[in-house]
Amino acid sequence: MLLPTVPIADPVTISAAADLLGITVDTIRYYEKEGIAPAPDRGPDGWRRYDEHDLAWLAGVVMLRGTGMSVAEMREYAAAYRAGADDEQRLALLRRHHETVLRRQAEVRRHLDALERKIAAYERQVDGR
Results as ranks from 00 to 15, higher is better:
residue 2 L to K: 11
residue 3 L to K: 05
residue 3 L to E: 02
residue 3 L to Y: 03
residue 5 T to S: 15
residue 5 T to Y: 08
residue 5 T to H: 13
residue 6 V to T: 04
residue 7 P to M: 07
residue 7 P to D: 12
residue 8 I to P: 05
residue 10 D to R: 12
residue 11 P to L: 00
residue 11 P to D: 03
residue 12 V to E: 02
residue 15 S to G: 15
residue 17 A to P: 02
residue 17 A to Y: 01
residue 18 A to T: 04
residue 18 A to E: 04
residue 20 L to H: 07
residue 20 L to G: 07
residue 21 L to D: 07
residue 21 L to V: 07
residue 22 G to Y: 06
residue 22 G to P: 00
residue 24 T to N: 06
residue 26 D to H: 15
residue 30 Y to P: 03
residue 31 Y to F: 13
residue 31 Y to I: 07
residue 34 E to F: 00
residue 35 G to D: 07
residue 35 G to L: 09
residue 35 G to Q: 08
residue 35 G to F: 05
residue 36 I to S: 02
residue 38 P to G: 08
residue 38 P to R: 08
residue 39 A to T: 13
residue 40 P to A: 05
residue 42 R to P: 05
residue 42 R to T: 09
residue 43 G to Y: 05
residue 43 G to L: 06
residue 44 P to L: 10
residue 45 D to V: 05
residue 46 G to I: 10
residue 46 G to V: 08
residue 46 G to W: 10
residue 47 W to K: 12
residue 48 R to G: 04
residue 50 Y to F: 13
residue 50 Y to W: 00
residue 52 E to V: 06
residue 54 D to R: 00
residue 56 A to M: 07
residue 59 A to C: 09
residue 60 G to L: 10
residue 61 V to G: 00
residue 61 V to I: 15
residue 61 V to M: 03
residue 63 M to W: 11
residue 63 M to R: 13
residue 63 M to T: 13
residue 65 R to N: 00
residue 65 R to G: 03
residue 66 G to W: 06
residue 67 T to I: 13
residue 68 G to Y: 02
residue 70 S to C: 11
residue 72 A to R: 14
residue 73 E to S: 14
residue 75 R to Q: 15
residue 75 R to E: 12
residue 75 R to I: 07
residue 77 Y to L: 14
residue 78 A to K: 01
residue 78 A to G: 04
residue 80 A to P: 03
residue 80 A to Y: 03
residue 81 Y to D: 13
residue 81 Y to H: 14
residue 82 R to S: 11
residue 82 R to C: 07
residue 83 A to L: 00
residue 83 A to K: 00
residue 84 G to N: 01
residue 85 A to V: 08
residue 85 A to H: 04
residue 87 D to S: 13
residue 87 D to Q: 13
residue 87 D to M: 12
residue 88 E to W: 02
residue 89 Q to L: 12
residue 90 R to T: 11
residue 91 L to G: 14
residue 92 A to C: 05
residue 94 L to A: 10
residue 94 L to G: 06
residue 95 R to W: 06
residue 97 H to C: 09
residue 97 H to P: 12
residue 99 E to R: 10
residue 99 E to L: 06
residue 101 V to F: 03
residue 102 L to W: 09
residue 103 R to E: 14
residue 103 R to F: 03
residue 104 R to C: 12
residue 105 Q to C: 11
residue 106 A to R: 06
residue 107 E to P: 03
residue 109 R to E: 15
residue 109 R to C: 06
residue 109 R to G: 06
residue 111 H to V: 04
residue 111 H to L: 12
residue 113 D to A: 14
residue 115 L to V: 12
residue 115 L to M: 13
residue 116 E to F: 00
residue 118 K to R: 09
residue 118 K to Q: 09
residue 119 I to Y: 11
residue 120 A to W: 06
residue 121 A to G: 08
residue 121 A to H: 13
residue 121 A to C: 04
residue 122 Y to P: 00
residue 122 Y to G: 04
residue 123 E to Q: 15
residue 124 R to H: 11
residue 125 Q to V: 11
residue 126 V to S: 04
residue 126 V to C: 03
residue 126 V to W: 09
residue 127 D to W: 02
residue 128 G to M: 06
residue 128 G to R: 15
